[in-house]
Design a protein around this nucleic acid. Structure first.
Length: 682
RNA sequence: GCGCCCGUAGCUCAGCUGGAUAGAGCGGCAGCCUCCGAAGCUGUAGGUCAGAAGUUCGAAUCUUCUCGGGCGCACCA
C-alpha cells in the first residue's frame, strides 16, 4: 500500500517538475523519516533541485509544498531541516484501504529460471549446501505467483553433476577400496536401506577415505591418480560397469538430497544432468557456434599452443586492449590440447540451452512427485521432441525450460570468475540481452566456529583456533551434515514445545516442533546478507530468542490466539475495518502517542510490497528477513501496550482487532516467502 | 604478483541509488507474569564507522592510498 502511494506521488511530482521547472529527474528519492513524528515519507528532492536551479533548497521546498500536499493519500506536508519535504499520510484512509488488502502488484512477464542446490551427488549435504538451497528457494518464492502477487512464471532447477570427478571418487572408493562389483553395490545399497542407514552418510565417510587414499602411499600417488582419471572417463563414456555403479550411487544420493531438502520445504521442477549434456552433445553444438562467431579459436603459439581458447572475461569487460604481438597468454582454455572440454565450456553450452539459443533440448522423465507438482529429470530418450516418454501428447513436461527470459544461478562466490566468463561469452556470441538477464546470485561460503568444530570432535591446530572460522572440507569428512543439523534444530524445538504444551497430542507437538526448528534454521541462514561469510555455530543457530525465526513465528501465533479467544475471524476483523461506518471517526484513535503506536504497526505492514520489490531487485532475501523481524517486533510492542480483548469502546476494539489481523496477515506472507511456516501454537 | 569481497558497540550483524541525532540482536546491569502465553516487554551502559587524503552544501556510504583479514587467479570441476 505504501508502494502504491509512492508510485502515485512519483507521477504527481514528475508532472509538477516538468510543468514548473522543465526538469525531469532520473530517480526520485523517497525515504522513511528517522522518526515517525516527522511523517511517513520524506523527500530530499529540494536538495537535488537546488544544484540545478541554483536556488536555496528551502525556497524550492516552499514552492512545491502545496502541490505535493494535494497528492492522493497525503494529509499534509511540512518542511523540515534545510529543505526536507515531510509528508504526513491520511492515516484513517490508509488503514481502511489496507484492511481491504489494497496493495501494489508485484510481478511481470517472462519466464524466470532459478537454479540452486546443485550438490555433487556423491555424499551428504552440509550447512554450506543448505545456505545455497535456502537462498535459492526463498528467492524463487519471492518471484513466484501466489495469493498475494501475480509474480513471474518461475521454474526451479537443480543441476546434477552426475559424471564429474567427485562421483568418480566415490566409484573409486567402492570398486578399489571396498572391492565391490555392480551386484555388490546393489546388495550394499539394499543392506543400507534395510538397516536404515542413509546412503549419503555412508558415502560421506567413503569420500573422506578415498581422498586420503590418493595421497597415502607416496610411490603410488601417480598410479592412483590414473585410476581416478580412468574411472572418470569410463563414467563419462557410459555403457560400462563403472558408469552403472556411478549412476546407481549418484541417483541414490540425489534422492537423499531431495528428501533432505523437502524437510525444509524445498522442491524442484527439473533436474538437468551432466550425463545428458554429454550424451546429447550439447557442447559440440555450442563449439560450432563459438568457432563460427570467432569467440573460440585455436592457439598456435605460446604456453597454450594446441588448445582452443577464448578471451578472459575480466579483461574483455574492463575494455583492456590486447597487444597485437604474440598470443594472448591470459586467454581462458576451453578445449585442452588432448581434445577434452573444460568445465566452463560445458557451462557455456548449458547456458545457451537455458536461453533457448542452443537449438537442442533434453528428453524428460518423471522423477519425483510432490503434493502439488512433478519434478522431472533429464534423459536422452525423447530428446528434442519436448516430450517425456508416456507423457501426454503435445504437453511439454517441463514447459518453459530451455527458453528462459531471465536466469538466476545460486552459486558460491568462489565461482565468480568462471560465472563471469560464461556470462561474457554469451555477450561475445552476440547475445547481449541474455547476458544482461544472467544473474549470478552469489553468496559467501559457510565455515564453522572453532567452538562448533571442537564440539564435533575435530582436532584444531593453533592457527585454526586463531581464525574467525574453520573451513569445512568434504575431503576430510569435516563439516555439519544437513540432516544432523535439521534433526538437532527440531529436537531443540521439541523440548520447548513439550515443556510448554504437555496437553497437546504427540502428532501436533511433533508438527509444531518441525515448523519451529525449520523456521529457526531458515531464518538463521537468511538473516545474513549474501556477501557475509557465516561462521556457523550450533549455539547461535539453536537460539530461539531475539532476532530469530521463532521470534517472528511467536508474534504470528500470539495474534492468532487473540482471535481464538475473541471468537472472531481475522478476515471479519479486517472486513469490519474496511467497511467501518463513516460516522465513526478513526482519526483521533490514530493520533497522539497512543494512537501513533497503533498506526506504526499499519505503517510497517503497509511497506510489504515495497520491501519485497527491494529484496527482489537486490536478489537479497535477507532484506525480507529483517523486515519480518521488524514487523514482529512492532506487533509485540503493540500487543504489550494495548489490551484488545478487554477494550470497551466498539470502534477502538475494531481498530485493535484489525491491527492484530493486518500484522498477522503480512507476517504470514513474508514468512511464507522465506519458507517459514507459522505453527498452530508455541 | 593480479582481480574480487570485507574491516561499524564486548560478540554477531544491518545501514536502501551519499542525506536529519549511526541501528538491531546477543551478552552486561536494573526492572515487568492476580491482566489476550515471559520463545515476550521496558529502561540503562557501550561506537574516532580500521587509518589518511580527496570530491560534495552534506560521506559509514563515492574516489585514491596505507594497514589488517578472507577468497579467487589450473590443459580440476
Amino acid at each position: 500500500m505504501y508502494r502504491t502511494l509512492q508510485l502515485q506521488l512519483q507521477t504527481t511530482i514528475e508532472a509538477l517538475l516538468k510543468e514548473r521547472y522543465q526538469i525531469s529527474l532520473e530517480n526520485l528519492a523517497m525515504e522513511l523519516p528517522p522518526r515517525i513524528e516527522l511523517g511517513e515519507i520524506a523527500l530530499p528532492l529540494a536538495f537535488e533541485l537546488a544544484k540545478r536551479l541554483k536556488k536555496a533548497p528551502r525556497i524550492i521546498a516552499q514552492e512545491i509544498q502545496a502541490a505535493v500536499a494535494n497528492a492522493p493519500g497525503v494529509a499534509r506536508v511540512e518542511i523540515a531541516g534545510a529543505g526536507y519535504l515531510n509528508l504526513k499520510l491520511d492515516r484513517p484512509s490508509m488503514v481502511k484501504r489496507m484492511a481491504a488488502d489494497e496493495h501494489a502488484r508485484v510481478g511481470g512477464g517472462g519466464f524466470r529460471l532459478v537454479e540452486h542446490t546443485s550438490i555433487n551427488p556423491n555424499k551428504a549435504a552440509h550447512v554450506g549446501h543448505l545456505r545455497n538451497a535456502i537462498l535459492g528457494d526463498s528467492f524463487a518464492r519471492m518471484l513466484k505467483r501466489d495469493e498475494y502477487k501475480p509474480g513471474w512464471e518461475t521454474g526451479v532447477q537443480n543441476y546434477i553433476d552426475n559424471t564429474g570427478v567427485q562421483v568418480a571418487d566415490i566409484v573409486v572408493a567402492i570398486t578399489e577400496l571396498q572391492g565391490m562389483s555392480l551386484d555388490g553395490v546393489r546388495a550394499w545399497m539394499a543392506a543400507l536401506r534395510s538397516s536404515g542407514t542413509r546412503l549419503d552418510y555412508a558415502c560421506w565417510d567413503l569420500y573422506a577415505q578415498v581422498s586420503q587414499w590418493y595421497q597415502a602411499d607416496a610411490p603410488r600417488v601417480a598410479e592412483r591418480r590414473q585410476i581416478r582419471l580412468d574411472t572418470l572417463h569410463a563414467i563419462e563414456a557410459g555403457g560400462n560397469e563403472k558408469a552403472e555403479i556411478a549412476d546407481l550411487i549418484a541417483t541414490g544420493v540425489l534422492r537423499r538430497h531431495l528428501e533432505t531438502m523437502e524437510r525444509l520445504g524445498i522442491e524442484y521442477d527439473f533436474l538437468p544432468r551432466e550425463s545428458e549434456i554429454l550424451h546429447l552433445h550439447f557442447w559440440e553444438t555450442a563449439r560450432a557456434l563459438m568457432v563460427q562467431r570467432g569467440v573460440l579459436y585455436l592457439e598456435t603459439a605460446g604456453k597454450n599452443k594446441g588448445c582452443w581458447v577464448m578471451r578472459r572475461a575480466i579483461s574483455a569487460a574492463a575494455g583492456v586492449e590486447l597487444s597485437t604481438d604474440g598470443p594472448d597468454e591470459d586467454a581462458k582454455i576451453i578445449i585442452r590440447s588432448n581434445g577434452t572440454v573444460t568445465y566452463v565450456g560445458k557451462d557455456i553450452a548449458y547456458h545457451l540451452w537455458k536461453f533457448g539459443l542452443l537449438g537442442k533440448d533434453f528428453g524428460y522423465a518423471k522423477f519425483r512427485d510432490y503434493p502439488t507438482h512433478t519434478c522431472w529429470i533429464s534423459t536422452v530418450h525423447g530428446a528434442g521432441t519436448g516430450l517425456a516418454p508416456g507423457s501426454e501428447a503435445g504437453v511439454h513436461p517441463a514447459q518453459g525450460y530451455g527458453h528462459a527470459d531471465a536466469i538466476y544461478n545460486v552459486i558460491d562466490s568462489r565461482q565468480d570468475d568462471p560465472q563471469t566468463q560464461v556470462k561474457e561469452s554469451l555477450r561475445a556470441l552476440g547475445y547481449a540481452e541474455e547476458s544482461d538477464a544472467y544473474t549470478h546470485l552469489n553468496y559467501a561460503f559457510v565455515g564453522l566456529t572453532a567452538r562448533t568444530a571442537q564440539e564435533l570432535g575435530y582436532g584444531l591446530s593453533e592457527e585454526d583456533r586463531a581464525r574467525n572460522f574453520i573451513e569445512v572440507s568434504g575431503r576430510k569428512g569435516f563439516g555439519v551434515k544437513a540432516d544432523d543439523l535439521i534433526d538437532r534444530m527440531i529436537e531443540a524445538a521439541r523440548k520447548e514445545v513439550d515443556a510448554r504444551h504437555p496437553d497437546l497430542d504427540e502428532a501436533e507437538r511433533a508438527a509444531i516442533a518441525r515448523t519451529i526448528g525449520v523456521g529457526a534454521l531458515r531464518y538463521f541462514l537468511l538473516r545474513f546478507t549474501r556477501n557475509t561469510v557465516i561462521a556457523f555455530d550450533y549455539q547461535d543457530a539453536l537460539a530461539f530468542d531475539g532476532e530469530t525465526g521463532p521470534y517472528a513465528q511467536y508474534a504470528a501465533v500470539r495474534a492468532a490466539n487473540i482471535f481464538r479467544k475473541a471468537g472472531v475471524q481475522e478476515s471479519d476483523a479486517l472486513e469490519a475495518m474496511a467497511h467501518l461506518d463513516p460516522s465513526q471517526d478513526l482519526a483521533p484513535l490514530l493520533e497522539g502517542e497512543d494512537g501513533t503506536s497503533v498506526w506504526e504497526v499499519w505503517l510497517t505492514a503497509s511497506r510489504l510490497s515495497l520491501v519485497l520489490e527491494q529484496a527482489i531487485a537486490a536478489a537479497e532475501p535477507a532484506i525480507l528477513a529483517r523486515y519480518a523481524f521488524l514487523l514482529a517486533q512492532q506487533f509485540n510492542n503493540f500487543y504489550h501496550r494495548h489490551h484488545i480483548l478487554t477494550e470497551t469502546d466498539a470502534t477502538r476494539k475494531t481498530l485493535l482487532l484489525s491491527t492484530a489481523a493486518v500484522a498477522r496477515r503480512e507476517l504470514v506472507r513474508v514468512l511464507g516467502w522465506l519458507g517459514i511456516g507459522v505453527p498452530s501454537a508455541m
